Computed example of a mutant assay.
Amino acid sequence: MDDEDDRGLNPDGTIRREGSPGRVPAPFAPVVEAARTRIAGTFGAARLHSAYVYGSIPRGTAVPGVSDLDLLVALRGAPTAADAAAVRALEAELDAAFDQIDGVGALLHDAATLTSRLERHDLGFFVACLCTPLLGEDLAARLPAYRPTPLLARETNGDLGLALPLWRRRAAGAVTDAERRALSRGVARRLVRTGFTLVMPRWRGWTSDLAESAEVFARYYPDRPERIAQLRLAARTGRAPSADPAVLTTLVEDLAPWLAAEYLAVHGEKAPRP
């Protein structure tokens, strides 16, 4: 766990950007370089504003053969269907080319949305604090410094309830182990982040480490041992996805509805998006 006096903050109490190129583990350096080259070649300078890598690779905690590659592509205009198709093809190419990674996920947005007032405490925070620049102008320069406030908690994860119908449909339709593992990883990570940000303003810090996030949550819900156990399960599943249908049922049908209701009671609902 991070030093008790650190908690992911700068000396002035703002949240420190968590990744950097220098932290990329050596086995993943070729992966990141290939991502840089292929993104530039796919979109070109006229279309591409900037690109970023986030997650365990720039944090320096990635495990070869286990960790996935997480990317953000920022365009100069609104993404089109062709842009989305190009990103899906890029994901498949990178995943097939490197045994070091177990999957690739690339988010696609336009720069104006990422720096908009509506997204200031959600996607804006994501870029400024959780993303490491790969290409182009770093949008973090256009964004403010962030603190672990209730506003940040509300705007990052105050919409968990909207994800539940989709998760239920995907869980019901998952017939292969690969489908269940992919869904369990995404659901588990979202639930751990939500559990952590639920208590983040009281902890007064930031972490993206799944195990640490679950333990921070546990400090503030000692009277909910069943929820602590479930969030720890989610943290383990986020790192090592499970194909067990019972795990998905626990996360989607038990932990997620409770967490969504508790979040609304504590922080309120995220500002609606168009």
Rank of each mutant, 00 (worst) to 15 (best):
S50M: 10
V104C: 07
G103T: 01
L139W: 03
F28N: 03
S184R: 04
P241L: 10
T113S: 11
E269T: 11
E18A: 14
V216M: 04
A96C: 12
G44R: 04
D95L: 03
A265M: 06
R76D: 08
L164E: 07
A85Q: 11
C131M: 10
A46E: 15
G105M: 11
S242A: 07
A45Y: 00
G173F: 01
T132S: 02
V266Q: 04
L231A: 02
T156D: 04
S116V: 06
H49V: 08
E269F: 01
V192I: 08
K270H: 15
V175D: 09
D102Q: 13
V266E: 11
R154V: 06
A62P: 01
A86K: 08
F217W: 08
P25W: 03
A92Q: 15
L166C: 09
G22T: 05
H121F: 15
A235I: 03
A163N: 08
V53C: 09
P30Q: 00
V73K: 10
D68G: 14
E179Y: 04
A81R: 13
G268C: 02
A171R: 13
I57V: 15
D110K: 08
A74M: 01
T61C: 10
P133H: 00
L231M: 09
E179L: 04
L151W: 04
A261E: 15
T250Y: 02
A211Y: 06
L72P: 07
A78H: 14
A45E: 12
A178K: 00
D5N: 11
D3K: 12
A265N: 11
E262G: 04
E269G: 07
D122M: 03
R185A: 13
D138F: 10
T132D: 01
E179Q: 13
I15A: 02
F28C: 02
D12P: 14
G77E: 09
I228L: 03
T156Q: 14
W167I: 02
R219K: 12
A111H: 12
V63P: 00
T250P: 13
N157H: 13
D3R: 15
A89M: 09
T115H: 03
S184C: 12
L251N: 03
G41S: 08
D83E: 02
G268N: 05
M200Q: 12
A96Y: 11
D68W: 05
I228N: 09
A218D: 00
G195I: 11
T113N: 03
A174N: 09
F217C: 05
A141Q: 13
G238S: 06
R239D: 14
W203K: 00
P11G: 00
P222G: 05
P201I: 12
A188L: 03
G13D: 01
Y146V: 01
G60F: 14
A40Y: 00
I15N: 06
A271G: 01
T176S: 15
P241D: 02
G65Q: 05
G22V: 07
W167C: 03
D70V: 07
L162C: 08
L255W: 02
L143H: 03
V73R: 06
W206S: 07
L259E: 10
